[in-house]
Amino acid sequence: MENKSKTKLLALILFIASEIMFFAGLLSAYWVIRSQIPNWPPPGQPRYPLEVTAFNSIILFSSLATLWMAEKKLSLKRNYLSWLIVTVAAGSCFLIIQGVEWFRLIQQGMGLIGNVYGGLFYVVVGVHALHVAAGLSVLIYLLLKSLKMKTAMESDSLQLGKVYWAFVVLLWPFIYVGLYVI
């Protein structure tokens, strides 16, 4: 069993490696297009929401910390569920705030059709949001499973969930700094 979980971890790391290359492609595409457009943001377009997203980034980062706490509590055989619930709540919060921001941007006239500036935002941030949603579903699945079993779950599955979540969270600064800040 010990070996099987190591194999799973290896598989996950390989998958994440190919995901990193995917985001590297996406972000370099962003830089190539952006470097060719003199006015950024183009006239009449809203700025990408810098401040709200800074706050949102803090929420995302704290979710990684709480997940780390959950794992630690589990290894000490203490109550880890509350930490896991906080993590799921923080992750959902991040997604909801992102969604609200999207609606605001659309209302301010940042569309997709013929708009490379808007398109880049929606594609890069949208793809990341999908990854957050995927990671979140894994965490919710683990949470529901351990609520149902009423016994502590195996630390291996939580570790896999954590590694993927760490990838999703640690990816975010590259997107935040690249798109919003600079």
């Binding site: 490696a17 190919s18 990193i20 290359m21 985001f23 595409a29």
Partner: peptide, 13 residues
């Protein structure tokens, strides 16, 4: 595995 990511990014765009 290391080369396919950027193409998927391009294909998505």
């Amino acid at each position: 595995m290391f080369s396919v990511g950027p193409l998927i990014a391009g294909a998505l765009m």
